[in-house]
């Protein structure tokens, strides 16, 4: 069952990712990315990470993609000219190089299978939200607080950038 779900959602994620790259219109690319993000969130559920799955749907597919769609609506309406991708050969080159990287990296990806899993904090089935909270507010308290400063800087920067009047 798990295998079937993995391949189903992995296939959806991969097809949606290819669609993100292949679409000519930015709007269709963004909608494909929403599908891809939701499929990846299903993979998180398969990996026993319900909190990350929920955050993925709420923050990524909800907030960030809405931000993207707002900007697309503002800057790149359907009537605007499609920006043509020049240099078609680059895409074939990218596919070739990607396949080459896959062949090169396959032994590396396979080598983790034999590594023994260390006994650290045990991940309890679906109750890992409490563990995440505990680690976030004890071991990772400094990064968490720095994150809030980062968001504050971003808010100020965005307001300064976007509200500047043309001189």
């Amino acid at each position: 069952m798990e295998t079937v779900l993995f391949y189903l959602f992995g296939g959806i994620a991969l097809l949606a990712a290819i669609s993100v790259v292949a679409q000519k219109r930015v709007f269709y690319s963004a909608m494909s990315l929403v599908v891809c993000l939701c499929a990846i969130s299903a993979e998180y559920l398969l990996l026993n990470a319900p909190f990350i799955a929920a955050v993925q749907v709420i923050v990524y597919a909800g907030a960030i993609m809405v931000l993207f769609l707002f900007v697309i609506m503002l800057l790149d309406p359907f009537s605007a000219a499609v920006i043509r991708d020049k240099k078609k050969y680059l895409s074939y080159l990218a596919i070739l190089l990607g396949a080459f990287a896959l062949i090169l990296l396959y032994p590396v990806l396979n080598s983790f299978e034999s590594a023994p899993t260390p006994r650290g904090m045990e991940l309890a089935g679906s109750g890992s939200i409490g563990q995440i909270g505990q680690a976030l507010f004890s071991e990772y308290l400094l990064p968490f607080e720095v994150t809030s400063v980062l968001i504050l800087i971003a808010i100020i920067g965005v307001v300064v950038l976007a509200s500047r009047r043309q001189s």
Binding site: L47, N48, A49, F112, T117, P118, R119, G120, M121, E122, L123, S128, Q131, I132, A135
Partner: peptide
């Protein structure tokens, strides 16, 4: 995270 059984 799943493989190493850690929440980090």
């Amino acid at each position: 995270s799943k493989h190493l059984n850690q929440v980090n």
